[in-house]
Write a protein that binds this DNA or RNA. Structure first.
Lengths: 246, 246
DNA sequence: CAAAACTACTTGTATATACAAGTTATCTAT
DNA sequence: ATAGATAACTTGTATATACAAGTAGTTTTG
């Protein structure tokens, strides 16, 4: 699939070998010079493949020593951009409840992220979901999807607000975006703070007001450049901490 | 300071110009060809500088269009496993103060991570550091290094507790571990919570007690398998949020 | 007038090469 | 035997160059 470029080929080969266990944790990979000979290319190209793998946390380098496989714990907990059910559902009995069904709104001002004029102009589809782990409410997520034009089917323009008409596929927003609009979430930026719970959040998360709450502002990056999804998250971390690893 | 390499120089110049507002959000940077002429270097070197700035979220590229300044987020990328000074020091005037010099202790019980019998037996070297960004105390870090045997120089066994004898190289624990024991930190696992500040933590972080505090439990992975470094972090996120991206 | 072609500019991928700097093991002189 | 030099390996930085591919504006063509 990604065979167009040499560095992508090298990248995929190495990634495959790591994931299939051919190269094990801590093991040294072939040196840049060896790989350059194998692939009949140059060190620059091999380094390009290495850079990708480093960025994704598969390998690391040590100057003068070599390049090594990182530990296989690449699961990223809730700090990753994977959907909630995808990450948490593997371990706990996780489910969500839609508090506010998708509805068209204007973006609040001020917004926690700088918006483009287009985003402001078209407004957003807003929805609010409460997340549970083992029957305990752990997270309140408020999501803003810019109401831009998307191609839902060939020669058929529509807007994100067609989301409001049906429920989320399998309870998953990401899956719905993929199926309906073939939009993929490819990354995220986030800022994390500790704040005090207020009436609204405390009520949903079954906690007292003025108690510590993990607050996260997110911007999801998608395959459709310049289409971002925004979320604010309120997490009750009393029982369930948020985890990640690199 | 980082003048040894051309790409570092370009990197610092551009970063400075962005932070000082000379290049504003969304603005187009000079093209790679223009910069290559200005700095009397090659595109490859300019691209290396750009890559760093992309990784740190200062700029982004659009194929065929150019390179642009991202919106400023003003937050600390502390969720990565890079050392504090390494991540924060590039952007802010960051420094640390050692509150408790490295000293040999037993591991507290219960400990936030399950320890191996060996780790418990040998105890740990404990140290406590307060981290500043622009003169504001933002983070209190308590670190536990298992006091295992390490090879400091050929045929010379010693323990981590030889750390207690001298100060940290360049104020950096990671650099000291690298130089003295050739131990590299290659990753981390962490759990994040929101808690209330107590007297001790509130005092150092110049905040009131019972106020929200970001609390992080960490286990750093090193190139020496089965040697982990443990840390607990208390972050005042009032002024500086913690950020990350994938 | 509108579509197509062209042009100039941008970043993306690639080759070929060189030397610097860190690591490791071996060899050598004391 | 031990310390120091050396050699062979690794990744890091750098030069010089070429063509591909995406973007945007201008010119040509129908």
């Amino acid at each position: 699939m990604n065979k167009d470029f040499i560095y992508k080929q090298v990248y995929q080969d190495l990634k495959g070998s790591i994931l299939s266990g051919q190269y094990k944790t801590g093991q040294k990979l072939p040196s840049e010079n060896e790989l350059k000979t194998i692939y009949k290319t140059t060190r620059v190209t091999i380094r390009q493949a290495f850079d990708e793998l480093i960025k994704e946390g598969f390998i690391y380098k040590e100057h003068g020593k070599g390049t090594f496989v990182k530990s296989e714990t690449r699961s990223l907990g809730l700090l990753s951009f994977k959907g909630f059910s995808e990450v948490v559902g593997e371990e706990y009995n996780a489910h969500s409840k839609v508090i506010i069904q998708p509805q068209v709104r204007r973006f609040p001002t001020p917004f926690f992220y700088e918006l483009s004029p287009t985003e402001v102009k078209y407004g957003c589809v807003y929805l609010e979901r409460l997340r549970f782990a083992d029957e305990t409410p752990v997270m309140l997520e408020q999501t803003y999807l810019p109401n831009i034009e998307v191609i839902s089917s060939p020669n058929n323009l529509s807007r994100i607000d067609s989301l409001t008409e049906d429920t989320l596929i399998g309870g998953s927003l990401f899956k719905t975006l993929h199926t309906k609009f073939s939009i993929e979430v490819i990354g995220l930026e986030q800022a994390i703070k500790a704040i005090e719970s207020e009436k609204y959040t405390a009520n949903f998360l079954k906690m007292k007001t003025k108690k510590p709450l993990l607050y996260i502002e997110r911007r999801y990056l998608t395959s459709r450049s310049s289409f971002y999804i925004y979320s604010t998250l309120y997490c009750n971390t009393d029982k369930y901490a948020i985890s990640s690893s690199f």
